[in-house]
Amino acid sequence: MVRPAMSEEGHRPDPQESEDSEQDRIDSEHRGFANAAWSIPSYILSGMAVYGGLGWLLDRWLGTSALLPIGILVGLALALYLVFHRYGRTS
């Protein structure tokens, strides 16, 4: 705002360099998408395994039978929350 001329002439990016960084940006976005898409099933499975396992142990300890399905659903919800938090932000 103060010196508009400066920003125009001050750093003119080298075209070669800007092309490289553009390609890098696209690559890293693509990488993030691919990583996310491949790791979602294992996040969900591990959420269900951790809290379902906890529910199963509590079931055996307390002699109930409802905690395993509840634990699985809770783990599912937590894993989905984790996925949404990790990959759902606007970058």
Binding site: A37, I44, V83, Y87
Partner: peptide, 12 residues
């Protein structure tokens, strides 16, 4: 991704 996560959850 979000839709995929929700759908995948059903399969799992």
């Amino acid at each position: 991704l979000l839709g995929f996560a929700l759908t995948e959850a059903l399969a799992l």
